[in-house]
């Protein structure tokens, strides 16, 4: 088991490293020279050479990559060009709201999608089942930022149930949660459809399993059979899917952040990219990559917890 965890973490590190090299290359391919951009068109050649040397840009590319990696591993992501603060601090500030939004989005998706999937699976082929599958496909098809705008218009502006903008007062947890409900719903609703379809499929299969029949033969109440005997294994493909889709969830969160003017990784990266604030762009994308890389081992661990047979083969 411990060997398995170590193995997964090493794999995540490898994925992150590859992504970092790609990130490095991408930033290099953007037209324009950061030094000229920083010093302006009328800078003296001496100043340009000094800054190039200071940023390591006069070194061969391989050395630059090496330098970049070693700086990242020592926790140095460079300096924000605008505020002159360390990028690490800027990114770590933006991370919690995005993380909260993504997790709350998964929460909404699971809280609605799993029960709906189970409900359909227990009466396959009925009108309710078919109606729910139409609604599911509908929910999948709505882009999250469109949904975000309509949620904002209807629940916040028209009904006034939820706040319109921002992430809530610092230190006021209830206020922050209240600010989180609607954006998270916008992030999660599309996934409700996916989850419902996926859970429905695996639940129908699970309800036909022999061990579910055993549970029925014991006279267990239906909710116990569904939760303890069927759902626990039927949920495994869904967890895998969520682990892989964390990238998609993050990008929904990034878009929704913009609509609701919430602070976060999305707003940070978008603003930085517009202002050619490359160190912040790199740092923000790197944070997203790391989130993606740790999501997979986490989902694998959840699966190992759900299905003991997986533990055995580790």
């Amino acid at each position: 088991m411990i060997g398995y965890v170590v193995q997964r973490i090493l794999l995540s590190l490898l994925i992150s490293a590859v992504a970092m090299v790609a990130l490095f290359a991408m930033v290099r391919m953007i037209p324009g020279d950061p030094v000229t951009l920083m010093l302006g068109a009328r800078a003296t050649p001496e100043a340009i050479a000094r800054l190039n040397a200071q940023m390591g840009l006069d070194q061969p590319v391989i050395t630059q990559i090496g330098l970049w990696f070693s700086r990242i591993f020592s926790g140095d992501l460079g300096v924000d060009i605008w505020s002159q603060r360390p990028v690490v601090d800027v990114v770590l500030e933006a991370l919690p709201p995005t993380l909260a939004l993504t997790l709350a989005g998964i929460g909404w998706a699971a809280a609605l999608g799993i029960p709906l999937g189970c409900y359909s699976a227990l009466r396959p082929g009925t009108f309710t089942d078919q109606a729910l599958s139409v609604v599911s496909v509908g929910a999948i098809s709505i882009p999250p930022f469109v949904l975000a705008i309509y949620c904002l218009l209807f629940f916040s502006v028209r009904l006034g149930w939820f706040p319109v903008l921002g992430a809530g007062e610092d230190g006021d947890l209830a206020d922050q949660i209240w600010h989180l409900v609607l954006p998270a719903f916008a992030v999660g609703l599309g996934w409700v459809g996916y989850l419902a379809r996926l859970v429905r499929g695996s639940m129908i299969e699970a309800m036909g399993e022999n061990h579910v029949r055993t549970a029925r033969a014991m006279g267990l109440p239906p909710h116990r059979i569904v939760v303890t005997y069927a759902l626990r294994l039927a949920i495994v493909p869904t967890v895998t899917m969520l682990g892989i889709s964390i990238g998609g969830l993050l990008s929904s969160a990034v878009l929704v952040e913009n609509v609701f003017s919430r602070p976060g990784l999305g707003t940070l990266i978008a603003d930085a990219a517009q202002g050619r604030n490359y160190p912040v762009v790199q740092g923000g994308v790197l944070a997203a990559v790391l989130l993606f890389a740790i999501a997979m081992p986490i989902s694998d661990l959840v699966i190992a917890w759900l299905d003991p047979r997986v533990r055995k083969s580790l």
Binding site: N210, H211, T214, Y229
Partner: peptide, 8 residues
């Protein structure tokens, strides 16, 4: 082999 729940 299949009559018992693998997760219980």
């Amino acid at each position: 082999m299949t009559a018992l729940s693998p997760s219980r």
